[in-house]
């Protein structure tokens, strides 16, 4: 592809690695969380739900700032990771993963939660009477019926992680090959008045985001109609 330097490519590869890692981890952790939020029966659901959606309204820099303090050498999280022999997370790829996961959490949990809620109680009642235990019901009823939600969650989580800037700036810094992701790279180009390069990267990102969302919209409605 024209217009991209080796450093641009490194930023691109790192971004993809970050987004894939974050999406996979978020789907694994977000599914039980969304399930609990959708179907749990405790009073804790609402405060937890508010906490999960907090990154939607919080400026990313605020989230990044607190994470920096928490995960830094003086923070509780930082002392824990140091004690575990992991060192401190800020300004590392792992730190970026943790921060991005928090930042993209609502984008994964919300579609999943909505999808689980949309199933309603009836299919689970039916499955129970047909002899399916709780875990069985989750895998044989909830997962197949909620799969459009999983698609949305994956696309949104991935795209949102690709596009983040503020959190990366605060907790990742701008270390080539470690934390220098696409959005940082574009910022660098603009700072250095390299508008052509900034243009190239921005266009790729724009096209990618559009393609991802388009794919999501193309895949969704057909399935929903089949539900009838």
């Amino acid at each position: 592809m024209a217009g991209l330097s080796a450093e641009d490519w490194a930023a691109f590869a790192l971004t993809m690695r970050l987004a894939v890692t974050v999406t996979v981890l978020l789907l694994l952790l977000g599914t039980p969380l969304a399930w609990w939020l959708a179907r749990g029966r405790t009073a804790w659901r609402r405060p937890v739900s508010a906490l999960v959606t907090l990154p939607l309204v919080l400026p990313p820099t605020v989230l990044g700032f607190y994470l920096l303090l928490l995960l830094g050498p003086q923070g509780a999280g930082g002392r824990l990771t140091t004690a575990l022999g992991l060192g401190t997370l800020p300004f590392t790829f792992a730190g970026l993963v943790v921060a991005s996961m928090l930042y993209s959490l609502p984008f994964v949990v919300q579609p999943l939660q909505n999808a689980f809620e949309a199933i309603g109680q009836r299919p689970f009642d039916v499955a129970a009477n047909l002899g399916a235990g709780p875990l069985d019901r989750f895998f044989s009823v909830a997962l197949p019926l909620a799969w459009p939600g999983f698609l949305t969650a994956a696309v949104l989580g991935f795209a949102h992680t690709v596009g983040e800037f503020g959190v990366v700036l605060m907790i990742g810094g701008n270390i080539p090959g470690q934390t220098r992701v696409l959005s940082m790279r574009i910022y660098d180009h603009v700072e250095a008045s390299e508008y052509l390069q900034a243009h190239a990267l921005s266009l790729y990102l724009l096209a990618f985001s559009f393609a991802a969302l388009l794919a999501m919209h193309l895949l969704r409605p057909r399935r929903l109609m089949a539900h009838d």
Binding site: R122, V126, A128, N129, L145, D228
Partner: peptide, 17 residues
Amino acid sequence: AHRRRIGYVFQEASLFP
């Protein structure tokens, strides 16, 4: 419910879509 071995037919058929 899943250990009671009950056949339950609902008002509107609740087949798995």
